[in-house]
Simulated assay, not measured.
Amino acid sequence: MTLTELRYIVTLAQEQHFGRAAERCHVSQPTLSVGVKKLEDELGILIFERSKSAVRVTPVGEGIIAQAQRVLEQTQSIRELAQAGKDQLAAPLRVGAIYTIGPYLFPHLIPQLHKVAPEMPLYIEENFTHVLRDKLRNGELDAIIVALPFQDADILTKALYDEPFYVLMSAEHPWTQKTTISSSLLDDKSLLLLGEGHCFRDQVLEACPTTNKELGSNSKYTTVEANSLETIRHMVASGLGVSVLPLSAVDTHHYAPGVIEVRPMEEPAPKRTVAIAWRASFPRPKAIEILSNAISECSLARKTQ
């Protein structure tokens, strides 16, 4: 049984004439007749009742014709899916990002991506690095946007841009008199940090060795931990303490002038490298290329350059 033979019997059932059916199938009448007879012999039944004046579908043939029609329709659907799959930018892309990147990158990325890949909408998830890593491995996500270092077997990474750190403080804080802030000053007991699990917390601690040392001791040194950079921003605005933000988060707030201030850190200023990671076996490399290019070209990435 072949798809060609199924097409023969469906066409013959519609035309009820061997000559017209053969013409529609672009074959000779004997070729079509042989194909129909071959299928009937294989099935052991007559699909058509033949006479000199007409060709009629038998009662058992009606069910076979109906099923053959469904098979041909499904075959066409498979062809259409395969054709769509050839366009790697014509389907949604599942993208994950860590909490300290996603909210600040996506408002810049999505308009830029829509210009170059309007038929590739994004399914977006924000989560911790280790969760995104697992979802990338098992195929729940196609690509993730993280901070380096990031290494995993069979995972490719591409650095996109570097992002310096800034110190955030209330407008009444004495450090507003400074033009830059030394990392050595950030051993203050009122430093506000993200909670455990956030890689940005670890990067801040690495950039501030004194703070990192104090956190590991049994001293009276304490910090306030929060679940998001926006929560930290609100606490800083209220005067609870100071914090460190990546550049992308500096201007994304709704506070009026005179409430909060930011200052760059002294050179060499600490920074993080934002990167994209994807499975080496992912079958849509063009989609990854377009996504990474869009990130590099969006206004946020240009701001860091």
Rank of each mutant, 00 (worst) to 15 (best):
E80K: 01
L81M: 11
L81Y: 03
L81S: 07
L81H: 10
L81E: 14
A82M: 05
A82Q: 13
A82L: 11
Q83N: 13
Q83I: 11
A84H: 12
A84Q: 15
G85A: 15
G85R: 15
K86P: 01
K86E: 14
K86V: 07
D87Y: 14
D87M: 13
D87F: 09
Q88P: 03
Q88V: 02
Q88W: 02
L89D: 03
L89V: 04
A90E: 01
A90R: 13
A90K: 13
A90Q: 04
A90V: 00
A90F: 11
A90T: 00
A90L: 09
A91N: 07
A91T: 11
A91K: 15
P92L: 05
P92T: 06
P92H: 14
L93F: 03
L93E: 03
L93W: 02
L93A: 09
L93H: 01
L93I: 06
R94S: 15
R94I: 06
R94H: 15
R94C: 04
R94M: 10
V95G: 13
V95E: 10
V95R: 05
G96R: 02
G96Q: 03
G96V: 02
G96W: 02
A97G: 12
A97S: 13
A97F: 05
I98T: 14
I98D: 06
I98L: 05
Y99A: 11
Y99N: 14
T100C: 11
T100Q: 15
I101A: 07
I101M: 12
I101V: 15
I101F: 05
G102P: 09
G102I: 02
G102R: 05
G102A: 13
P103F: 12
P103C: 06
P103N: 08
P103A: 08
Y104T: 00
Y104I: 00
Y104H: 11
L105R: 01
L105G: 05
L105S: 04
F106W: 09
F106M: 12
F106Y: 12
F106L: 14
F106V: 07
P107Q: 07
P107I: 08
P107R: 10
H108P: 05
H108S: 03
H108G: 02
L109D: 04
L109P: 08
I110D: 08
I110G: 00
P111S: 04
P111V: 08
P111G: 07
Q112C: 01
Q112S: 04
Q112E: 15
L113P: 01
L113Q: 01
H114D: 05
K115N: 00
K115V: 10
K115H: 01
K115Q: 10
K115A: 09
